[in-house]
Simulated scan of single mutants.
Amino acid sequence: MIVRPAEPADLPTLAPLWRAAWLDGHVGHVPAELMDERGPEHFAVHAEKYAASTLVATGPGDRILGLIILGDDDGEVIQLAVDGSARGQGVGGALLRSAEDRFRGGHRQAWLAVVPGNTRARRFYELHGWRDTGPLTYRAPTATGTVDVPVHRYVKDLNAGDAEAPGRSAGGPA
Rank of each mutant, 00 (worst) to 15 (best):
residue 131 R to M: 13
residue 130 W to C: 06
residue 133 T to I: 10
residue 75 G to H: 01
residue 116 P to Y: 14
residue 89 Q to M: 07
residue 162 D to M: 06
residue 125 Y to A: 07
residue 106 G to C: 14
residue 113 A to M: 13
residue 133 T to M: 05
residue 85 S to F: 14
residue 159 N to A: 12
residue 107 H to W: 01
residue 98 S to I: 08
residue 100 E to I: 14
residue 121 A to P: 01
residue 103 F to R: 07
residue 101 D to I: 13
residue 126 E to Q: 14
residue 159 N to T: 01
residue 101 D to G: 13
residue 98 S to Y: 07
residue 160 A to E: 05
residue 139 R to L: 15
residue 145 G to R: 07
residue 96 L to D: 03
residue 112 L to H: 09
residue 78 I to K: 09
residue 132 D to G: 11
residue 119 T to M: 03
residue 126 E to F: 00
residue 160 A to C: 05
residue 89 Q to N: 01
residue 82 V to N: 10
residue 111 W to N: 06
residue 144 T to H: 07
residue 151 V to A: 08
residue 146 T to I: 12
residue 97 R to F: 10
residue 79 Q to D: 15
residue 161 G to W: 07
residue 78 I to Q: 14
residue 108 R to F: 05
residue 89 Q to C: 10
residue 126 E to N: 06
residue 91 V to I: 08
residue 81 A to F: 13
residue 115 V to K: 02
residue 93 G to H: 10
residue 139 R to Q: 15
residue 160 A to V: 03
residue 144 T to A: 04
residue 120 R to I: 14
residue 101 D to R: 14
residue 75 G to W: 02
residue 107 H to N: 02
residue 150 P to V: 13
residue 89 Q to E: 15
residue 151 V to M: 12
residue 104 R to A: 14
residue 155 V to I: 07
residue 99 A to P: 10
residue 140 A to F: 04
residue 95 L to W: 07
residue 106 G to L: 13
residue 119 T to A: 09
residue 130 W to M: 12
residue 137 T to Q: 08
residue 162 D to W: 09
residue 87 R to N: 08
